[in-house]
Amino acid sequence: PGPVIIPAALAAAQENSSTSRIFLNSIIYGYEVMIRLGESIGKEHYKFFHNTATCGSFGSGIAVGKILNLNNDQLINVLGNCGSVMGGLWQMRNEDVMTKQFHNANAARTGFTSAILAKNGLTGPKFILEGPHGVYAAIAKDGDPNKIISDRYPKWKIFDTSFKPWAACRHAHPVIDATLKIEKKISSADIKNIKIKTYKDAIKFCDRVSPKNVTDAKFSLQHVFATSLIDGPPSISSFDEINYNRDDIDSLRKKIILEMSEEIEKSYPDHYGAEIEIDLNNGDNIKVFQKDALGDPGNPITEQDIIKKFFNLMKNADVNLSKIDDIVNCVLDLSNGGELNKLERLLVEK
């Protein structure tokens, strides 16, 4: 939810001179709404729609609405109008385009705009989710609206979110993690064949033997296995053209067979898992299993791991180290009442 909710909340907080406490609380509310809707909307929806795009505006809208101190009727109008214009088709995954990133931006903008307009009197449909021409009837036929209002969750949903340690599609992460668990040092020449077992969506979205561009490489189970086995933990550059076109990586990718595992499929999406089985030319067999992707609630990463990833991303964007350090310290201080204005200045200064 972060790439959708946090930019919208930060913009609204900046415009309204909000405190860090109001800003942080708005993010928690936004996460709660977006995640509950995402959990309720069903697998059929995900076949064609990018959930971050469709559910994201609900989260950003509520976050901004909280910063604007909207009442319940106004927040209902926000959600109604977000739902009325929701969209985000997966077709962009079949082409070399930047639309996936645009989905995030559009969901943030839609929520932000809907909240501003609701404050100024724009109304929206109250029954946009469960109405006869609403979201569930139109594009989430196997959805379960009761999951939105269930009170069986003991804590805020933000605590159940995942952090992505690797610069690849989340569906590819279990394969990366399983590959990195292989203790025996083996080369491509030692390998006869490789079988990767995982859940259906991972294969549907990430079956690319020969990536043609950076996005293909990030959405390739074959590539993430090969680059992780040969080079170790993947970096941003692992998905660059110079690496996905390497002969040694290409040769290894072509030895891989993908297979849907009934056991792993049953546990998905509660667990993003993968199993790797490697047959060696000398007759040996290696098996590794990853129940939860690194960064999921069942396999969490530390605060220092998250900070390290932030440093790597900012360095890749040519931000100097002292400024990165200042941003990190400023963000960590927000929960103690730190200045939100200081963060804004750091983010916009060249």
Rank of each mutant, 00 (worst) to 15 (best):
D151W: 11
N69H: 10
L24E: 05
A293M: 04
F102P: 02
F127D: 15
D292N: 15
G87I: 02
E277V: 10
V331T: 03
H133K: 09
K309L: 15
P7K: 08
K315N: 13
D279N: 15
V4P: 04
P297G: 04
S228V: 03
I249Q: 01
I27W: 03
F289V: 10
P269I: 03
E95T: 12
V214F: 03
I196E: 01
D73Y: 09
L122M: 13
K350T: 11
N16M: 14
K43Q: 13
D284A: 13
N81F: 02
A178P: 05
L117C: 13
N281H: 13
A217H: 03
E303H: 11
K255L: 11
I67T: 14
D325L: 06
F48R: 14
E277C: 11
K218M: 15
K157E: 13
I301L: 13
K185W: 00
G283L: 05
N316P: 02
D142R: 06
K66Q: 12
N316V: 00
E15H: 05
V97N: 11
C330D: 03
G298F: 03
E183A: 09
I67S: 04
A9S: 12
C169W: 01
Y268D: 01
T123L: 13
R170Y: 15
K141C: 02
S26H: 04
L180A: 11
P145R: 04
I230F: 04
D231P: 01
Q290V: 08
F163N: 12
D160V: 00
V209Y: 10
G2F: 12
L89V: 08
R208S: 13
I28F: 12
K350P: 00
V319K: 15
E259V: 02
G232T: 10
N81K: 12
D279A: 12
Y29M: 11
G134Q: 02
H223G: 02
L122I: 11
A217M: 01
I278Y: 12
P211T: 00
A108C: 09
L229N: 07
V209Q: 08
A13D: 04
N104I: 09
R93C: 10
C169P: 02
I148T: 02
S237P: 00
N16P: 00
S220V: 08
E32I: 06
T110M: 12
A167I: 08
P154M: 05
S60F: 07
K212Y: 00
H271T: 10
T215K: 15
L332W: 00
V78A: 03
E259S: 10
G273W: 04
G30K: 01
K126L: 05
P211S: 06
K218Y: 02
P297R: 06
K309T: 10
P145Q: 05
G337T: 10
A53W: 06
A8Y: 05
A138T: 12
H171R: 05
L332Y: 00
L10S: 01
A63W: 06
L68A: 06
T52I: 11
E349A: 07
I307L: 03
C330V: 07
D284W: 08
K164I: 03
M34W: 01
R170L: 14
N320W: 01
K291S: 15
G295Q: 08
I327A: 01
G121L: 11
I76A: 08
L10A: 06
S335E: 14
E183L: 09
T113L: 14
I158S: 14
A9N: 03
F219G: 12
A226L: 05
L332P: 01
I158W: 06
